[in-house]
Nucleic acid binder design. Structure first.
Lengths: 110, 110
DNA sequence: GGTTTGGTCAACCATTTGGTTGAATATGCG
DNA sequence: CGCATATTCAACCAAATGGTTGACCAAACC
């Protein structure tokens, strides 16, 4: 569960990958087209896309010999909700949020 | 470009550090007390705190021989703003949040 | 003053990350 | 068929990450 957030945040921690997400915001794209504006190899971009896919941030569907990349905002939604617990905490929500975080806080008293 | 987001997201990508943030949500804590529930060395926790500090997510102030850690939600807000650049699921996010509150927070006025 | 307490530093280690190149695998085209 | 295109795979590399231990410094206490 919090492993989910691990991979999502780790995926977001790279500027190349964030740029890719922003590109996919406009429209679905083929892998080659995603790679075009970057000054790195196609293989490197392919790896980035794997990381984004494993984080659930995008999906890839192969049609013919072209693999299309599509933004999948669900994973981002989870991370966004997590952050709002800290960013704008209202006192009412605190308790519920802490339970929602599923922080496996090794509480000694339990 | 946004090296800021790099460090913030990278800091959030580790479950130990997210747990620390959740602990600091309750109250400011000394380094030793932060480390207590974890099964790793104090030095390891100290490193995590440095990473959180450099990301701007917490601040540390030394009073006497005790160093106090304090949550600094501003950096998280920046990351949250970045996510809202993907504005299309911003409302969905809020929806999910409200649904979560309804489900997770039965004690509010019952 | 000597010793405990709080915390960091330094050196080290294993694993992961982000990149490269070159070969391999499909798929489409003439 | 034969060739070009789209993408991944495999091996490799340098640097970063997350952890350890032991020495170290600074503040507090008897």
């Amino acid at each position: 569960m919090s492993n989910d957030l691990d991979t999502v945040f780790a995926a977001l921690a790279d500027p190349t990958r964030r740029t890719i997400l922003a590109m996919l915001l406009e429209d679905d794209m083929a892998v080659t087209d995603v790679a075009e504006p970057f000054e790195m190899s196609l293989a490197a971009i392919s790896k980035h896309l794997v990381i984004l896919t494993r984080a659930g941030l995008i999906s890839q569907e192969k049609r013919g010999r072209v693999k299309w990349c599509k933004l999948e905002p669900d994973a981002l939604r989870a991370a966004s909700v997590w952050m709002q617990g800290f960013g704008q905490f209202e006192p009412v929500n605190l308790d519920a949020f802490e339970r929602f975080l599923e922080v496996e806080l090794p509480t000694d008293e339990s």
